[in-house]
Every structure is written in C-alpha cells, then in structure tokens.
C-alpha cells in the first residue's frame, strides 16, 4: 500500500476545511430570506412605509452578506491558492 504523502494530506485536509468554511455561507442566506419574508409581511400591513423598509433591509442585508463572503474567500484560498503547500 502506498504511503500518504504530506502534500496529499494537506490537500485533503484543505478540501475538508474549504467545505467547513462554506457553512458560513448558509447563515446569511437563511437570515436574508427571513428578513425579506418579514419585510413583505410589514409592507402588506403598512404599504406607505415600503421605501423605508426596503432601504433598511438593503443596508442591513448588504452588511450581513459579509460573513458569507469571508467563508467563501477562505474556501477559495484553501482550494486554489493554498499557502500551506509552500511550507512543505
């Protein structure tokens, strides 16, 4: 049986790490959906406040997305520009 090389081990662990990092992308999606649902509910109840609701949701959701992008950046760096391989 062939022994596992250090490079193969790093690549395998990086792939697992990238998958784990992408869990960060789920939260903002659920949150944005929930906020949009509540926003739709509120606009139905109070149509004159539509502009204010959209503005507040827009700014809040744009910032909330940041954590998802952090996870995405970590995952892509681990997959395509892995700095750990150079340490071997």
């Amino acid at each position: 049986m062939e022994a596992i090389t250090g490079r193969a081990l790093i690549l395998a662990c990086s792939a697992i790490g990238a998958g784990l990092a992408m869990i960060a992308g789920i939260g903002p999606g659920i949150g944005q959906g929930y906020a949009a649902g509540k926003g739709a509910e509120t606009v139905g109840r109070q149509p004159e406040a539509e502009g204010t609701i959209i503005r507040t949701m827009l700014l809040g959701q744009a910032v909330a997305e940041t954590t998802g992008i952090y996870g995405l950046v970590i995952a892509l760096i681990l997959l395509f520009a892995n700095p750990l391989i150079n340490l071997l």
């Binding site: 903002p28 999606g29 949009a36 649902g37 739709a40 606009v43 959209i54 949701m57 997305e65």
Partner: peptide
Amino acid sequence: LVKAVRMQPHQAQAYAASRY
C-alpha cells in the same frame, strides 16, 4: 428586495434566499 416585498411572505423568503 423591491420584488420580494411585493410577494407573499413565504414566497419572498424563498426568493430572497435563492437570489442570495
């Protein structure tokens, strides 16, 4: 968001999450 707030709440949820 402009489109989502004019939908039914459960539709808006799915729409916003898919667009995300």
